[in-house]
Amino acid sequence: MCGIAGLLGPDGDDLKMAFSMASLLNHRGPDGTRSWAEPCSNGGVGFGHTRLSIVDIRGSDQPLHSDDGCVLIVNGEIYNHQQIRNQERSFQFRTKGDGEAILAAYAARKNEFSWVQRLDGIWAFALWDPIRERLILCRDRLGVKPLVRTVTDQGTLLFGSEVKSLRAHPGHMPTLDLDALVARIAYEYPLDETTLFEGVHSIRPGNLEIWKINENGAEIEEVHRWVDDTSINVNQSWSSQNDAGPLLESLTQSVADRLMSDVPLGIVLSGGLDSAMVAALAHEASERTGYPLPACWTVAESEDNPDWVAAEHVCQTLDLEHHQHILDENAFQKSLPNLGWHGE
């Protein structure tokens, strides 16, 4: 994962502020922190990015730039980036990374949203179009990658992968939202775009927001939502004889997509059905893609833990490299402050 952060508003072209916001996300991207900023009408815009290098390790530092002046920061993976590269040969690609496919798709857009639907992957990104002077914030359909935002009293839009990045700006004072906290405790997950902090909201999964800046500061101009028109007949019975094959193929291809990497990957293996299935499918996926077979990692409080035993069984059966770690006594209590900081 990587970390993205930025601002749009009267003080948006503050390069040091963009860097400071991103620096609070260094745990998301230990391979380098970069920032960019430029003025625009009524203020400016600034981006910060902390990178975890996975694809095109040396050539895809962010922000990414296009020949028409657009600037992009992204946290995520675009699995079909090679397909978009083949389709958009007139676009001047500067890297070999997957993120640049977003700029290519945007450059070829025919409207405000359908270009995003060309992307296959998981993402949270911010894209600045200097010609239109518009900022685009977008998340993938399932909301795998986080992206939050708030607007200060002075009219500056702040956004980031985590709420803590907003703390770098003096116009933001984090205040606990007790109503949201009660709802989170009751339902164990958020019911809407609220976070645990007053005035800070998540970009909804599948949403694309377009922001502009005027004499009063940043304001949202348009919101587009990815609505899948796939229809499902709930009365239609599922046949293991007819449907198991396509389902297995879909799962295998999904695992193959996620092996896209220029560095070693791993599987967190609990020994349960879900992670064991991913480990098993990784064999076929590795053969298809040519990427190395990922190793597995298991953590438990003792070797008697059923998950520990089951994970050993899986790796022995599938002949997988297996790394195991026994947690220290009182590991949870010792880690609680860090869990609070990183879990927000």
Rank of each mutant, 00 (worst) to 15 (best):
C70I: 00
G343V: 00
V144M: 04
D304L: 13
L251T: 09
L247P: 08
C315G: 04
M17W: 03
A276L: 06
P30N: 09
A310E: 01
Q316Y: 03
G59C: 08
N207K: 01
L142G: 10
Q83V: 10
E88Y: 13
S90C: 11
S254G: 15
L320Y: 04
S202V: 05
F47A: 03
S114Q: 11
F91L: 10
H169L: 12
L119P: 01
L15M: 09
L135G: 05
L293C: 08
I122N: 08
R184P: 00
G206C: 02
V182T: 04
V200P: 04
I203W: 03
N330V: 05
A101F: 01
E312F: 01
D319N: 15
G97V: 04
F125S: 02
L24T: 05
R167Q: 14
A256G: 11
L265V: 12
Q83G: 13
E162T: 11
Y291W: 06
W308M: 02
R167A: 15
S250L: 13
S231H: 04
A276P: 03
L327K: 03
C296W: 02
G171P: 07
S231C: 04
A282T: 09
D68C: 08
N111F: 08
R85A: 10
E329H: 12
E209D: 12
T252F: 03
M21K: 03
L119A: 02
D68Y: 06
I131Y: 07
A310R: 04
L247D: 07
L269K: 01
D14V: 02
S41F: 08
E219V: 03
H81F: 15
R134V: 11
Q87E: 15
I84W: 00
Q253F: 07
R141V: 07
S90Q: 15
W36P: 00
L15D: 01
T50Y: 02
R58T: 09
S261I: 10
R51N: 03
S275N: 11
E303M: 13
F159E: 08
E188V: 15
E249A: 14
A101I: 00
E188K: 13
W211V: 02
Y79C: 09
D129I: 12
S20C: 09
E219M: 07
D228F: 05
T175Q: 14
I131K: 14
G199S: 12
D229I: 03
M17A: 12
I203P: 02
L327A: 15
S66P: 06
D257L: 11
A276R: 01
D153W: 00
A105P: 01
L147W: 04
L273W: 12
D262H: 08
L25V: 07
N305G: 03
T95M: 05
